[in-house]
Design a protein around this nucleic acid. Structure first.
Length: 299
DNA sequence: GAATCGTGGCG
DNA sequence: TCGCCAAGATT
């Protein structure tokens, strides 16, 4: 269940007004901001944007929506077609989950993407961020949206920290809620504006404070840009030589082939047989690959 | 709560 | 070169 925390009694709004004004003047022209972009398009874009940069998403999004303009269109094809069309966006189970979403939306929601956060949360691959992003950006709902950009902006501007540390919905959602304007349209623009600010100005590595509309009020800047000293995000393991790399190689092979991929062909991909078999078993367990007598195929 | 899950670009 | 980062979700 979602429990939206009641807005703090003190009306916070200079910050929101500044961000909203800045957003209206500086927002990028992105596909999901076009007039007439559908709720389904928003859902697809949010899936693709999970941990994948905007620049890599855009071309695939256009292809995807041209081919499957509604959930019902996607629901009619096998899940493997979704995985194939996912190309090299990464984390291919997102494609599987998106296909499962299309089926559930078609069968349980009359083909209409739900506008309710709790309903969205019942769908596969949709968590706190994506549920709110769809409810807000597709339907204009008033909810706090918290992504990595917004967490960073709040950490700096409000808390005076260089880095937000590990995500924590119990803390992050109320923090954003306390800043959110009461007006629905304003709250949508504020959510989008905070994300945009984090994406193009208050960026992780080299923030462009010169162009930041919040620089005068930024607690981190006013404190002299202290270095971050809190708990670090988990360090990402090396990709080269990892199981993830092997899985990626196998999936690339499956996407490229329209006939079963044999064990012999997979042997040429990766010499370490134990690791290769582990990757294959994992992909089968995840439903990303299916074993048949002739070899491995997409589901 | 920590580990796992792709891929590519950038400083 | 290589570590960090990218509109997260699941187990």
């Amino acid at each position: 269940m979602v429990s939206e925390i009641a807005a703090a009694s003190a009306p916070p709004l200079p910050l929101a007004a500044i961000v909203i004004d800045w957003f209206h003047a500086n927002r990028r022209d992105l596909p999901w901001r076009r007039d007439g972009f559908t709720a389904w398009g928003t859902l697809v874009s949010e899936f693709m944007l999970q941990q994948t940069p905007v620049s890599r998403v855009i071309p695939h999004l256009e292809d995807w929506l041209t081919r499957w303009p509604t959930p019902a269109d996607l629901a009619t094809v096998p899940p493997g077609e979704a995985v194939r069309a996912w190309k090299s966006l990464g984390y291919p189970r997102r494609a599987l989950w998106l296909h499962a979403c299309a089926v559930a939306i078609t069968e349980e929601f009359g083909g209409v993407v739900p506008d309710d956060v709790d309903a969205l949360l019942t769908l596969p691959g949709i968590g706190d961020y994506t549920a709110r992003a769809v409810a807000v950006f597709a339907y204009g709902g008033r909810h706090p949206v918290v992504d990595t950009n917004i967490r960073r902006v709040i950490a700096r501007v409000v808390d005076g920290n260089a880095d937000p540390g590990p995500p924590n919905a119990r803390r992050d959602l109320p923090a954003m809620e306390s800043l959110l304007p009461g007006d629905r349209a304003a709250s949508v623009a504020f959510n989008a504006g905070m994300m945009e600010l984090g994406a193009i100005v208050c960026v992780a590595r080299a923030p462009r404070c010169d162009g930041c509309p919040l620089s005068e009020a930024c607690a981190w800047r006013l404190a002299g840009y202290p270095a971050y000293d809190g708990p670090r995000k988990a360090v990402q393991k090396k990709y080269e030589g990892s199981d993830r790399q092997v899985r990626g190689l196998v999936m690339a092979e499956l996407r490229a082939s329209h006939i079963p991929v044999t064990r012999a062909e997979l042997e040429t991909l990766w010499p370490d047989s134990a690791q290769r078999e582990r990757a294959i078993a994992g992909l089968v367990a995840d439903g990303l690959a299916v074993e048949n007598p002739d070899g491995l195929v997409l589901p």
